[in-house]
Design a protein around this nucleic acid. Structure first.
Length: 329
DNA sequence: GAAACGTGGTG
DNA sequence: TCACCAAGTTT
């Protein structure tokens, strides 16, 4: 049925596939696993250039993750976002005793591994003849079959329908690459697509699937307060889901709390933070908080917004030294 | 099943 | 400038 389609796809993959991706060259399931988690909702470029290699250098094996502290894992995840992934990775490593399961069922029992990641790990790391279904494949399927509605269950059926059981590994990799480089969300390059002759959505690729109703992100106003006591500053480790386990400064309702240091805007996945930053020398007692010298703060894992706060603190400090003529440090 | 969950790149 | 997107999972 799909013989010609599969041939077209494989030919395209041979010539145009991203054959140099490191997690595609390794035969270490752990490395494939790490790549799959890092790549969730994250661009290849970011993972490749800033996170994949440093993480593996610090944690060469899953056992290293299992025997390390969450704070250490988080430090290597700092800046990558969706920090629950790091928490889940750490938890999963301990769940399986540092030995990654080799089948979809057992993989899915681990924290942070859903059906999509389980199939990807099984297919890429263990060469299981299973179709994958990620955002790339979904976009291709929606267009190929001209599917308007988003339906997870049906998409899996189509994923199995189009799957090439004779070349499972190459097929899956090829689908990822077509989705990432040809069947693009905004500007699909249909003229060079291996599916061109059979794609039902080609006349109007942007129609599949139907776009979600656009909602504007709410803006939340806060004050970020840097409490200072001599040469130390107060930070606490977050306990809730948002930016879980990351350290940060005090955050309160928007009003003046001392010396104004600047304004911080940070766009999160579901809201925008607008915060004024203050330096306070008022007495501050809270068991949640610990006191750090400025250089010690850098050793903690901080969110982007809190890093901006540190930068403003340093900038302000430096500016003051210039004014007082004090040029030490 | 909808909403929560980060950050950087892009048009 | 800003909405949208990029290899999803959990609640």
């Amino acid at each position: 049925m799909y013989k010609e389609v599969h041939k077209s796809l494989l030919d395209w993959y041979d010539k145009n596939g991203r054959h140099e991706l490191p997690w595609r060259l390794t035969n270490d399931p752990y490395k494939v696993y790490v790549s799959e988690i890092m790549l969730q909702q994250t661009q290849v470029k970011t993972v490749l250039e800033r996170f994949y290699f440093p993480f593996l250098e610090r944690f060469p094996t899953l056992m290293d993750v299992a025997t390390s502290e969450l704070d250490d894992v988080l430090k290597k995840w700092e800046g990558l976002g969706y920090y629950t992934r790091a928490k889940n990775l750490h938890n999963a490593a301990r769940q399986c005793g540092g030995i990654l399961p080799n089948n979809v069922h057992d993989l899915m029992q681990l924290s942070g591994i859903g059906r999509s990641s389980a199939h990807a790990i099984a297919a890429f790391a263990y060469r299981e003849p299973l179709p994958i279904l990620d955002a790339n494949v979904k976009r291709i399927l929606h267009r190929y079959y001209a599917l308007i509605k988003r339906d997870e269950k049906k998409l899996w059926e189509y994923a199995y329908a189009l799957f090439d059981t004779n070349h499972p590994f190459e097929y899956n990799q090829a689908m990822m690459d077509v989705g990432a480089t040809v069947c693009l969300a905004k500007n699909p390059l249909c003229t060079v697509c291996p599916f061109e002759s059979w794609c039902a959505g080609k006349p109007s690729p942007l129609s599949y699937p139907e776009s979600k109703p656009k909602t504007q992100k709410p803006v939340r106003h806060h004050a970020i307060i840097i409490h200072q006591r001599e040469n130390r500053f107060a930070l606490r480790q977050r306990r809730k889901r948002f930016l879980h386990a990351l350290w940060g400064f005090d955050q309160q309702e928007p009003k003046p709390y001392g010396e104004f240091l600047g304004h911080i805007t940070q766009h999160y996945s579901h809201f925008t933070l607008e915060a004024d930053l203050y330096l306070s020398h008022e007495r501050f007692e809270d068991e949640e908080f610990e006191w750090f010298e400025i250089d010690e703060i850098e050793k903690l894992s901080l969110s982007r917004a809190d890093h901006k706060a540190v930068a403003l603190l340093r900038y302000n400090h430096k500016k003051r030294e210039e004014h007082t003529g004090d040029s030490k440090s």
